[in-house]
Structures are given as C-alpha cells and as structure tokens.
Write a protein that binds this DNA or RNA. Sequence first.
DNA 1: GGCAGCCTGGTT
DNA 2: AACCAGGCTGCC
Length: 243
Amino acid sequence: MEPRALLDGARIAALHRHGKQLAIEANDGRVLVIQLGMSGQIRLVGPGYPPAPTAHRHIEWRLVLDQGRVPARCRVLLCDPRRFGGVHAARTMTELRAGAWGGLGPDALDLHARALAGVLVGRRAVKAVLLDQGAIAGVGNIYADEALFRARVHPATRAERVPPGRIAPLAAALRAVLRAAVAAGGSSLRDYMAADGACGAAQNRHAVYGAAGSPCLRCRTTLRGVRLAGRATVFCPACQPKA
DNA sequence: GGCAGCCTGGTT
DNA sequence: AACCAGGCTGCC
C-alpha cells in the first residue's frame, strides 16, 4: 500500500480518530487509516530531515504536502521502528465506520459508566477487557494500569465481579487518566513524540506503570508487578483489593 | 480465555 | 545471549 498514491492530488479535508485508530479523509472521500502500533510516530518535518541516515529497517511512509498551511516541501513521516503499525485504505469514512471501526468499542476518552458496565461481562480479567479494543477503544497497557489504580480495582478481578460501585469510578478514572495524559503530551517512554518532535511528560506522572517494587503513592505498600493478559502489570495489593 | 508470534532496538 | 518493550492477530 502506497499512501502517497492513495491520496495523491487530494486535499486533506478532515482528520478522524477512534481509540488508537487515526484516519485522514481526503476531499474526494478517500481515507487513509493509520495505526501506530507500539512504536509508530507521525512527524511533520521540513525538507532537511533527516539530517543523517537513520535506521533503514524502519518502515517509513511519506506524505508530501505541497500546498496549504505548511511550509513548502514539508513531509508527514509515518515512522515505525518496530513495524507493528500499519496503514491501509478505506473508500469512505462511512465504509470505515461500518467496517473496521464498527468493531471498536466506545472511545475511552468519553466512556460512560453505563457503557463500561455493558462490557464488564464474562470471566476474563477486568484489565483484559480494558485492553480489548472491541470492548473499549483507546486504552493501552500503561493507562489500563493507571486507571485501575486510580479506581482501586485489582487488575485480575473478573469482569463480571467488578463491584457495581466501582464501575462509575473506573469509567471516570479511564477518562481522567487519558485526558491528563493527552494534556501532558503523552507518555514518551521510548519512541513516542508529537508531530513536531516534542516529547510528552505523562511518563512522569505514572503512579504504577513501571513502578513495581516502589512504594504506593497512596499507602506506601510495595507495588507488585505481575504478568496479566500477556502484559506487564503493576498494582498496589493494598489499595486494589481483588473483589 | 491465554499465549505465541510478529519486528527491531535497547538494556541487562 | 537473553530478555524486555507503549499493540494486535490468530491459534489453540
């Protein structure tokens, strides 16, 4: 897939996002769908970039913007060192929403308690549900742990056994954690940076992610690190009792 | 459900 | 050399 050919000659009409999926809609309706995966970055760079040869194994797509409100010969680079991301096409946003995006759950940024309650069914761990894009769209490993900590829910609690009284707090925690992270510019742990190259600061505010063995910020109990749903998981055994 | 596998790169 | 990583698919 060559996105340049896909959107060649088109004018960018709108940008869309649902969960972690991004889409560029052209004025003729065609759509370029972008998934950044774990290490993907979108960069807006000038003609001189990159100054030196970079790792060539990286996937890199270029969108050349030759008109509009950016300096001439700027390019949008989609870099993906780990090559877990991807780009694909959709005929229209309507088709995309009826297709691939139709399988996504409600966006976590404005997740209502009722919607969360609707997907907290079955026996799998609540964290596995939070990470399931078909249940809730937009939550990854970092923010799943952060939200569960904030809502005082043990990550291994079976979805159907999350106490009813904790569902609204968990929905609120997901919204708050994500909004705060966006406001802080995202978590720049390794690869992530904004389109202008700016690093985020949300990684400095993580309460539990990456902090196994450290004292809980609320109660000083040592945070525990386990493996859950195949992912590194950190929680406070005291603050987050298993229901 | 869990989990290996996909990739590269950085750290132990 | 082995292990780990922000995600997701598909195979048990």
